[in-house]
Amino acid sequence: MLEIKDLKAKIDNKEILKGLNLEIKPGEVHAIMGPNGSGKSTLSNVLSGKKGYTVSGDVRYLNENLLNLEIEERAHKGIFLAFQYPLEIPGVNTNIFLKTSLNAIKKARGEKELDAIEFLKLVKKKASELKFDEKILSRQLNVGFSGGEKKKNEILQMSILNPKLSILDETDSGLDIDALKIVSEGVNALRSKESSFLIITHYQRLLEYIKPDFVHVLINGQIVKSGGSELALELESKGYESLS
């Protein structure tokens, strides 16, 4: 699904990713942990195609050179990023944003776009699965949403867009205990042989709900250690000190 070789990324002459290697196969869940500022969000930005980075290395996604694709092309091909800090867009109704997004992706794939009624039916279903108050969806996108509501809204979008590769950047931060469970269930419901996840988190607890196949430790722009889910427990007790 995704193969990253010797990925380097610079911004404003500061090197952030310093030769990163990672392979994710279809159906796998990978977790990335690492100290603040180690480059986790940078990795998710670079994978989604955000502008402003000088990037080198080789990234293949579904047998294609990912680095050549525009941001929206990557989205059309199934890459989804749940933002660490979801953006507010005043005046834009959340439902309309979601529908525009879904239909833009469907259109790019040559699939039939949903009309207003079909869309609302889908949203209703997904929102209730995530115990997400539908009323929030008629508000302006993320404007005045609580921290947790913003994160839940990202997961709602993810479950509606049904991506192939989902990157979750600290989606668990800011969620209450119940919400954490619900969001995890949402992710688990999307797990399948064809879909993969890259989950960035600081907390081992999330990984109790979403069992990862691999855990990687990212320090100073490189993956310094990889292992199974037991690695997360080890980190929780020992911290990053021993690894750096």
Binding site: E72, F83, L87, I89, F97, S101, A104, I105
Partner: peptide, 19 residues
């Protein structure tokens, strides 16, 4: 954010401005 959700530059601008 909008591009990541599949909107191209023009669609994104149009959406934000209409908002």
């Amino acid at each position: 954010y909008c591009n990541q959700r599949g909107l191209n530059q023009e669609e994104a601008v149009s959406l934000i401005v209409n908002g």
